[in-house]
């Protein structure tokens, strides 16, 4: 049997994502076998390649959105681009969608899974000033409550937007946060977000 390193890297990436999705708010670290030169976007590409292909669609938004980035994602995953309202995966480059994600599809009451997954590409999930939590999370996958530290490079209102998108459970969106060092964290729609007043 041929085991290519790419095949197992994809499985490893997915296991990491699965751990993050089933334990919201807890940081997981992606496998170090990064392709290419290991630039700041490689963790994002790794996650996208483990999930995206010609059977789904994606959109790029956010302050760091470029056509080149969209072309690279399309090229590496063969995934067709779509509008924000239609995309199955929405990449928020630079962590700030400026409210664009509010247009994401949230599924239907009968098929809530036909919703978008929002992938935030942020600078760091471990901000230097981690004393002040950004939010308190609770719900499935969390024992009691977990404090979410401030995320470096995440737009100030993005958590609020997520909360707005997820008011009609089971409809809603699931969010994945990926930083430049290969750390990931998830906030699925089942998570209650209590934003901490600063």
């Amino acid at each position: 049997m041929k085991i290519t390193s790419d095949e197992t890297a994809m499985q490893r990436t997915f296991r990491c994502l699965l751990a993050a999705m089933s334990r919201p708010g807890r940081i997981q670290v992606l496998p170090s076998t990064l392709e290419g030169g290991g630039g700041p976007r490689e963790p994002l590409f790794l996650v996208l390649r483990s999930l995206l292909d010609q059977e789904v669609s994606f959109a790029v938004t956010g302050v760091d959105r470029t056509d080149a980035l969209q072309a690279i994602i399309a090229g590496r995953t063969r995934c067709p681009a779509a509008t924000i309202g239609e995309a199955d995966y929405i990449v928020v480059a630079g962590g700030d969608s400026d409210g664009e994600i509010l247009g994401a599809k949230r599924g239907t009451q009968q098929y809530p899974d036909t919703s978008a997954t929002i992938v935030f590409a942020v600078r760091s999930l471990l901000a230097p000033d981690s004393r002040r939590p950004a939010a308190a999370l609770s719900g499935p996958g969390i024992r009691g409550e977990i404090l979410l530290g401030p995320i470096q490079g995440l737009g100030p209102r993005e958590l609020e937007h997520l909360r707005t998108l997820n008011t009609d459970f089971p409809m809603g969106v699931d969010a994945v946060f990926i930083d430049e060092r290969g750390r990931i964290l998830c906030i699925p729609r089942s998570t209650k977000i209590r934003i901490q007043e600063n």
């Binding site: 499985q11 699965l18 999705m21 995206l52 292909d53 899974d113 699931d174 699925p188 729609r189 089942s190």
Partner: peptide, 21 residues
Amino acid sequence: DDVSKREIRRKILKAVAIPGY
């Protein structure tokens, strides 16, 4: 094959995000 695995992975994540659905 890869396409099948990716579909199942996408669906597993959705399943985890919507417990019991």
